[in-house]
């Protein structure tokens, strides 16, 4: 057995006392500790870097806000005490606010997670909005021949192509002298077009449309994603599209007729889709002047052209 003079509790006390002494007397160690703490706070989320940020919190407040925690400056009798009181009050206030923010963000995170779980559950039970990409490829982007037909109908001006795929329509519009860009959710599908130098952007087409300003574009091409939306959302989308067009602007809808869907697509594609005739009907009901134009296909055989009044 180890010798009796070996006292582990004494060694522990010595080590802890030595650590305290070094902390007080060695400015290099204090600076290193401060650097370590700051590095950790920079990489850790709120609330994870300890309960007592103390001096570091004040330091951060100094850096981030117009709060001078050392004011008023002066060494006169009494001023030092006032300084100390202000410093302490600032610290306690900042700490209180930080704790409240951390607690609030923690509660929000937890609530959002629960809401997400419940929505997942509801969506699973109801069977809507299920991501069908594992079952079925997304609708093909318009063919080069259809793209050329779209470009002829849209004409020049600033045009946004929603569900642009590899950018065939955007390229056709650019060649026709217009200024076009495309948006698609599938970043991989965009790549060939991006390499060709086309202005193609990753994002949700519907969200992008919603975020456009009223009357800000001359042309809109609706493809792909509109084939998978529920009817109620399509009606909303028509209103939004017409609102975002400048006076005399054109919407071109390039969708496959759901009546021509193969059995696999008919049964697995989410959203029933609506025919070009129904698109025309809905657009007319919203006051647009509408025509149907034959398209070379193969998938999209007719284009719906709507002009704002």
């Amino acid at each position: 057995m180890p010798e009796k003079s070996f006292d582990i509790n004494r060694i522990r006390a010595e080590i802890e006392a030595d650590a305290e002494t070094r902390r007080r007397q060695d400015p290099e160690l204090a600076r290193l500790e401060r650097d370590i703490e700051r590095a950790w706070i920079d990489v850790a989320p709120p609330g994870a870097a300890g309960d007592d940020p103390g001096e570091l919190l004040l330091d951060r407040a100094d850096r981030l806000a117009l709060i001078d925690v050392d004011a008023p400056i002066g060494e006169r009798r009494g001023v030092r005490e006032v300084k100390g009181a202000i410093r302490k009050a600032t610290y306690w206030y900042l700490r209180y606010v930080t704790d409240q923010m951390n607690a609030f963000s923690g509660v929000l995170t937890r609530l959002l997670r629960r809401m997400n779980e419940r929505l997942d559950h509801v969506e699973h039970v109801v069977g809507i909005y299920r991501d069908d990409r594992e079952l079925l490829d997304p609708p093909d982007a318009p063919s080069p021949a259809t793209s050329a037909a779209i470009a002829r109908e849209v004409g020049s001006g600033r045009t946004v192509v929603l569900s642009c795929g590899d950018g065939e329509v955007v390229a056709a519009l650019d060649e026709a002298g217009g200024s076009a860009y495309g948006v698609d959710r599938d970043a991989v599908a965009l790549l060939p077009g991006v390499e060709r130098g086309l202005d193609l952007r990753t994002g949700d087409p519907r969200t992008h449309l919603v975020e456009l300003e009223t009357g800000s574009v001359d042309g809109l091409v609706l493809a792909g994603f509109v084939e998978t939306l529920p009817v109620a959302m399509l009606v909303d989308l028509i209103d939004i599209s017409l609102d975002r067009l400048a006076v005399g602007g054109r919407v071109v809808v390039a969708v496959a007729d759901p009546g021509n869907r193969s059995p696999i697509e008919a049964e697995l594609r989410q959203g029933r889709g609506i025919s070009p005739e129904t698109w025309a009907h809905l657009l007319e009901r919203r006051g647009a002047a509408v025509s149907l134009v034959d398209s070379p296909g193969p998938r999209v055989t007719r284009l719906v052209i709507a002009t704002t009044p």
Binding site: P2, E3, F6, I11, R12, I15, E16, L29
Partner: peptide, 28 residues
């Protein structure tokens, strides 16, 4: 060797002491 914590300075001190003291290391 227990250290009240969190206390990286004391942890470093304890390791430093053990690395420098063969007798203590062997006893422990």
């Amino acid at each position: 060797l227990l250290i009240d914590g969190p206390n990286p300075v004391a942890l470093a001190g304890a390791v430093d002491r053990l690395l420098g003291d063969d007798r203590l290391r062997s006893c422990m």
